[in-house]
Write a protein that binds this DNA or RNA. Sequence first.
RNA 1: GGGAGGGUACCCAAGUGGCUAAAGGGGGCAGACUGUAAAUCUGCUGGUUGACGCCUACGGUGGUUCGAAUCCACUCCCUCCCA
Length: 375
Amino acid sequence: MFELIKKEKKARLGVYKCSSGVVHTPVFMNVGTQAAIKGGLSAKDLELVGCQIELSNTYHLHLRPGDQIIKKLGGLHKFMGYNGPILTDSGGFQIFSLARLRKIKEEGVYFNSHIDGRAVFMGPEESMSIQSNLGSDIAMAFDECIKIPSDYSYVKKSCDRTARWLQRCVEEHNRLKETNPTNPEQVLFGINQGAIYHDLRIEHIKRITEFNLAGYAIGGLAVGEAAEDMYETIEAVEEYMPANKPRYLMGVGTPVNIIEAVYRGVDFFDCVMPARNGRHGSLFTWAGIMNIKNERYKDDERPISDECNCPVCKSYSRAYIRHLFAANEILGLRFAVMHNLFFYNSLMEGIRAAVKNEEFEGFRRKYIEILDRRI
RNA sequence: GGGAGGGUACCCAAGUGGCUAAAGGGGGCAGACUGUAAAUCUGCUGGUUGACGCCUACGGUGGUUCGAAUCCACUCCCUCCCA
């Protein structure tokens, strides 16, 4: 259930309530694809970094360990020791990311497992069934994440199919709710597609909002298009998204992307970036992005950021973290990811406070100049 | 004292007349990363230059040759075996 608390222009402050807890929006969902945060973080660590809601993946957990096993063990929350809200992505992104390993048909997608090559079929019903077994709080519709650039004619054809898939997702989701769900409170979010063709985006969002789902996502962005194209696409779609439902911009993004999307009316985000880039040595701060592997930090006794209250910045120096990277110690990755997730969660906290105090306009102006800068 | 094998760039190591400023690793230095096939991938790593080029370089010195890391002589070091 979503409650809109306040608006500053299009930026929204809200509260999303689900069976596993309350989420204050705008929110960044911390990504734990395989029921773990890459870089060696556990559910307990998610609390330390201020995580409100976690995201896991249908395709990956279906392949390993298998959703039947997770259901048998009491669901994903219990399995990974996390009792906060969980959103599961549907497998639709893997149609994009594992493009060389799949064939799309009307009935669904024939994957060859990236692990061992075996045939794995996933359609709307399978995705819903797996997510039902996982027992996440929010299930995502099975969609095709379309690469950009793609021909108009292909995008149109794909959007029509994703809309037909949504019909099947809704029916299966309702059916499973009645039978033997791991989490009877699970809700379904729909996903808008259309690449950067505004007319297709609008046609598609109109079509999927007819299902009156618990929330709506904008998918298929940040897949190669210019940032400006992404912002314009959000603006085009946003007008047609229900005001009383959460809006989720999937897979985005940089701190500046997030600010710009909040500015255009988005509530939910998720991105691999703080975890992946952290593992690769890029650390996000209020002053910009630093590469902790750089030589200039070899004897720097300061924390990553003086303005940061994360567990890493409270105890360790840049020199120490750089050393951990150089020495190939996994502790370095863990610290980097912890810091970055803490930063992203703090960024969202800052955004919420700004909207609450009607200072978001100034917050945006200040930070879009700073946060993507390399320092 | 006798015999054998070696000395190549920061390190290890390939190369036995021109296609070699020198393979491949490691190390070092940078960059990329957006619903995670990523503790990954890419580039650079003798000097100078925007580039062409020029200079310096395969233990040292001196030769042979149009041309040498590569062939010859002497020499200095290292490892192993025998006495």
